[in-house]
């Protein structure tokens, strides 16, 4: 066995140990001291009581949501960077996240879907993401991946402009505050039912991307080489964008805008995958999940009354990490 073959499992072991630790921590930390395993067990067997209630209704959904949203963002970021052969590609380039934000915003502004209560922003967000995606695919036609992402950027700009208009004409300051707060991102005050909406989109989107691993690997050497290896760049590219948009759209519809995770997670994961874009998917998803779990824990530890939103925290953590990466890359290129 050679050196490289030993190194990969060890790195992924640490990766998943870290993820598991963050998940456990997320279950353990909160305003009330509750035994994690005892509470989970009580909840599973249907034993009533405070520990079961806190675990089953509050902490477990929150931790699972943070995990899913982070994994979705990390995975879609890794896929898009591979597809575009560009380390600066970000999930928001698909237009789906802005579309989801606009869909959710229309709930706060127009009060659409009143019968759905807390699920209204989620469903409207999913609809917005789907609409933005369809517009993007229609605009790009059967174009190359670069054109597809340009189309995504154009639709994202359009959705962003519409969102700004919604903010501009907000009916009252409370609606605007609610909207802005929602957009800043959070995984709190959501239940298992949110996961039921989120999971199918995550599974399908993830599977679509997973099946395009040969395409992502080949694209390292460019579109010409990829086509000469018998792979359909245009069709595969559309599938990757579709998968990424499903992941990002559902993540944003559930938890609002959680910035920088999709951009930074693939960068952190790249050394563990020997820079191979196809091997990057799982580590990037694991790192994305860990980052969002940790950020959510920090958000919880803030003194009560002064809530800091999850999206603000990930951006505050992610941006300096990104600056550090660029600093490192700058030295490598000299």
């Amino acid at each position: 066995m050679n050196f490289a073959e030993i190194r990969i499992p060890r790195a992924s072991f640490f990766l998943f140990a870290g993820l598991l630790a963050a998940f456990f921590l997320s279950l353990a930390i909160g305003s009330a001291p509750v035994p994690v395993l005892g509470g989970l067990f009580d909840w599973l067997i249907g034993q009533p009581g405070l520990p079961a209630l806190v675990m089953g209704e509050i902490r477990l959904p929150r931790a699972l949501l943070a995990l899913s949203v982070g994994a979705a963002l990390g995975l879609s970021g890794a896929a898009l960077q591979g597809l575009l052969r560009n380390p600066l590609a970000d999930p928001s380039l698909t237009g789906a996240s802005q579309g989801a934000a606009l869909g959710a915003a229309s709930v706060f502004y127009f009060g659409v879907l009143p019968g759905l209560g807390v699920f209204a922003p989620l469903l409207a967000g999913l609809a917005g993401a789907a609409l933005a995606l369809l517009l993007t695919l229609w605009l790009a036609g059967s174009g190359r991946p670069a054109l597809l992402l340009l189309a995504g950027l154009a639709i994202a700009s359009l959705s962003g402009a519409a969102l700004a208009a919604v903010l501009n004409f907000a009916p009252n300051p409370f609606a605007m505050q609610e909207l802005v707060f929602w957009l800043l991102g959070s995984v709190s005050e959501r239940g298992m039912a949110h996961l039921v909406f989120l999971l199918p989109a995550l599974v399908i989107g993830g599977a679509l991307i997973w099946r395009q691993r040969p395409l992502l690997a080949a694209l390292s050497l460019g579109e010409q080489v990829t086509a000469s290896l018998g792979l359909d760049v245009r069709r595969g590219g559309r599938i990757v964008v579709l998968g990424a948009a499903m992941l990002v759209g559902s993540a944003v519809a559930t938890a609002g805008n959680i910035g920088f995770v999709g951009l930074i997670a693939p960068h952190l994961a790249r050394p563990l995958a020997q820079n191979r874009p196809d091997r990057l998917l799982i580590p990037a998803a694991a790192i994305g999940a860990t980052l969002v779990l940790l950020a959510d824990i920090v958000a919880r530890l803030m003194p009560p009354g002064r809530e800091i939103r999850l999206g603000v925290l990930t951006a505050l953590i992610g941006a300096p990490l990104f600056i550090r990466l660029i600093w490192k890359m700058r030295r490598e290129w000299l």
């Binding site: 390292s220 050497l221 460019g222 010409q224 080489v225």
Partner: peptide, 14 residues
């Protein structure tokens, strides 16, 4: 098998 005129790798692969 096709070898294009210009080749490059987007990532620092081994």
């Amino acid at each position: 098998g096709f070898l294009p005129q210009f080749c490059d790798s987007a990532w620092a692969l081994a």
